[in-house]
């Protein structure tokens, strides 16, 4: 890999995204701390996975990267551009640099537009005025995502497509502007198991071909290895572990990661008989997170008088960065 490719594309620095809670529509009633101090760098052409259970803040993080949420504190820097400070036209233009693949492909496609109209929209909005040029690019991208023969699909409406085909249209729309970064928010969780791998392989292929950076957000660790180089594990608004994909699967360091790994269902006949040890309890409230380590109420390896008092920071453990007092 060249140096250029290892340059930082997106830099997240101590990002906080808090949503204000209001009482009766005006009085202040605290904040939902959806993202609470996240820092990482994403390089050109790199794929990372962000893993965590529902409500851990991964979608809020993603929407902040897309410029749909404003950071409360901290910065999102995209190629020397401070995303949090953008507004109006500049923000609109910035958004066009990022592809967005959503979770529910049917919901992500306007039901009253056909495939051609859907795919032309990003081009129209971003100033491709020539109709022939638009059609050429639509056809090209449809071939890329293997919606072939193109003419069969061009005039179909979303409800006439299967889930996998719908997701291909969503992916086509995300890459039609040739973005440097694609954010994929659980792109396969709503699909049949049979088409998941295909869609992931397609995304992977496109990522390699165009050298896009991809942020792959999921709650399903079993799909992570198709994709990413690094895995970030999020818990209650924090990134608790950052590690290369191979080592996290075989050697999770953070007790929460270990618990997630245990909960992952591999299609292995032996698994049918083993009982899984799930961490007890619920994910904590994001309005009043527990003091100290946020995982400590559920943690099996809790250190008394430390975990519930002091917040851990990123600690090096092999090639992992773990925010857990066990590795002090």
């Amino acid at each position: 890999m060249t140096d250029k490719q290892r340059d930082v594309l997106l830099s997240i620095q101590d990002l906080h995204v808090w949503f204000e809670l209001r009482r009766f529509g005006f009085g202040h009633a605290g904040y939902v701390k959806a993202v609470d101090g996240v820092t990482f760098d994403l390089h050109f052409g790199e794929t990372i996975a962000i893993v965590g259970e529902s409500g851990c803040g991964k979608s809020s993080l993603m929407k902040t990267i897309l410029g749909l949420n404003k950071p409360t504190k901290g910065k999102v820097i995209f190629e020397n551009l401070d995303v949090g400070a953008l507004s109006g036209e500049a923000l609109r233009q910035y958004r066009a640099h990022i592809g967005y693949v959503q979770q529910d492909p049917f919901g992500a496609l306007a039901p009253f537009m056909n495939v051609q109209q859907i795919l032309e929209e990003p081009l129209l909005i971003n100033g491709v005025k020539d109709a022939a040029e638009r059609e050429r690019r639509v056809r090209k991208v449809m071939e890329e995502v293997k919606l072939t023969p193109v003419d069969d699909f061009l005039h179909k409406f979303p409800h006439m497509l299967s889930g996998g085909q719908q997701q291909r249209v969503v992916i086509a729309r995300a890459i039609i502007l040739e973005p440097k970064l694609v954010v994929a928010d659980e792109p396969v969780s709503m699909l049949d198991a049979s088409v998941r791998v295909e869609i992931l392989k397609l995304l992977r292929g496109l990522q390699e071909k165009y050298h896009m950076a991809v942020i792959y957000i999921t709650h399903d660790l079993s799909t992570v290895r198709y994709f990413s180089e690094r895995v970030f594990v999020m818990y209650a608004g924090n990134v608790v572990e950052k590690a290369p994909v191979n080592s996290i699967v075989h050697n999770p360091k953070h007790p929460y990661t270990a618990a997630l790994m245990d909960a992952t269902s591999d299609p292995d006949a032996n698994n049918a008989l083993t009982m899984r040890e799930l961490p007890p309890g619920e994910p904590p409230s994001l309005v009043n997170p527990p003091p100290g380590c946020r995982f400590h109420p559920r943690c099996p390896k809790r250190i008394e008088n430390l975990c519930e008092v002091e917040e851990p920071y990123d600690l090096q453990a092999d090639d992992h960065l773990v925010s857990c007092w066990l590795y002090k």
Binding site: L66, L68, R92, Q93, R95, A96, I98, Y100, Q102, Q103, D104, G107, A108, L109, A110, P111, F112, E121, P122, I125, N126, V170, R173, L177
Partner: peptide
């Protein structure tokens, strides 16, 4: 989700209102 997507690829407010909200 499709309106979120529209905003993500840069639709202006007016376009969202007339092209995505009202046709629905």
């Amino acid at each position: 989700a499709y309106i979120e997507a529209a905003r993500a690829y840069g639709s202006s407010d007016i376009r969202v209102i007339f092209k995505y909200l009202i046709p629905r």
